[in-house]
Design a protein around this nucleic acid. Structure first.
Lengths: 202, 202
DNA sequence: CTAGAGTTTAACCAATTGGTTAAATAAATC
DNA sequence: GATTTATTTAACCAATTGGTTAAACTCTAG
């Protein structure tokens, strides 16, 4: 029963590329078949429908995005070091999959129930919740300036993720090419951590 | 020749709603016709094609987004006050059109040439460029801590805009309903300005 | 080898899509 | 009022779309 799963994987890889690039509505089954170098009927043979195929790609993308965040806050470190590690890890990770956030966010906005239902009962990102409490403790102890931990968290995420979401717009506005943008994002790690840690000094 | 332009405007209003909601690829001409309460052929009578209609809606959306930013930095104010005004204005403005940024950013990513060409020759957002120089001067004078002005600008935009782009995801992660989210964004104005100004203290 | 399962293909299908057309209706001009 | 002009409609069309099918091919177990 050790079936040759190369085709299945080729299909998923192709579907990932096309769906992330064009979105659910913009992607064509023929595009995916061409990308995978196979017949269109194969898509339906291995995965029943466009929606089924999409769901696999989409779920995988969400996991990839969220798992990264959660893992960072798991380690046993002072809060400030976690911030540094999170920014470092997250921007590095997004540099490798720069189109993921926009894809996920757009598809969620097209069909909010999809994700809202899926995550309604699960305790999502428990390590991040823990981190929020650690921040609160430091602020209570006076080792960190008091700010709303939730707003801080959202700001961290925003500063890391948004440049990738708004990349084409930012590049147009500020007239930076691809190479300059990559360098800018590398520099951005240090900027964000310095900027945030400075603001959090007691 | 004073033609009744009510129909034309109805069409644009309907197109705006549908396109912003579903995107170019996801929108159907029939949806727009239904939304406007008219026959599908009217769309082609007044606006030649789906693409023509989309371009009008899209250009309008981009203008709405960028004009706001630029206007803020035009006024004659100290840099710090401009930051406060920009955050206040921008979050207020986005609260009224929360789906605009995601729409624009997604469509640009689908077809980057569209906007890159359009803005390649224009001196875009001149007031914002001026603001970046004002920041540089303050930093040189020692009245403001030295940071990369561009990174600062991108961070400001990120912190204001991203929560609206990632809204459904943030709401899912942090389990906040619509009412709580609106309140949170109102609180966010003060958080961002305090957070940024604190970090910029010399 | 061969029987049967799993795999792949080409041809096909019904529904949907953006777009057209010709006729009908309303508005304006004479 | 009649004629011209602009607006609106219903019916239609060709192309595309997601999906199906039946036949062909490949591979492995007996």
């Amino acid at each position: 029963m050790q079936t040759n799963n190369t085709t299945e994987q080729q299909i998923i890889a192709a579907a990932r590329k096309i769906f992330v690039q064009k979105g659910l509505a913009g992607a064509r089954m023929q595009d995916i078949a061409d990308e995978a170098g196979i017949n269109k009927a194969m898509l339906h043979y291995y995965y029943r429908s466009k929606d089924k195929l999409f769901e696999i790609v989409f779920d995988e993308a969400v996991s990839q995005l969220l798992a990264g965040v959660n893992d960072i806050f798991e380690k046993d470190m002072p809060a400030r070091e976690k911030i540094v590690a999170a920014v470092e890890h997250y921007i590095t990770s997004l540099n490798k999959a720069p189109y993921l956030p926009l894809f996920v966010v757009h598809e969620i906005s097209q069909n909010p129930e999809r994700i809202l239902q899926k995550f309604s009962n699960t305790a999502l990102l428990p390590n991040m919740r823990m981190f929020l409490k650690e921040l609160a403790v430091e602020m209570e102890n006076g080792t960190m300036r008091k700010v709303d931990p939730w707003q801080l968290m959202v700001s961290l995420i925003s500063m890391c993720v948004f440049p990738f979401v708004g990349r084409p717009l930012l590049q147009a506005i500020f007239q930076v090419n691809d190479k300059a943008f990559a360098k800018t994002m590398e520099d951005r790690k240090k900027f964000i951590t310095d900027f945030v840690l400075t603001s959090l000094k007691p």
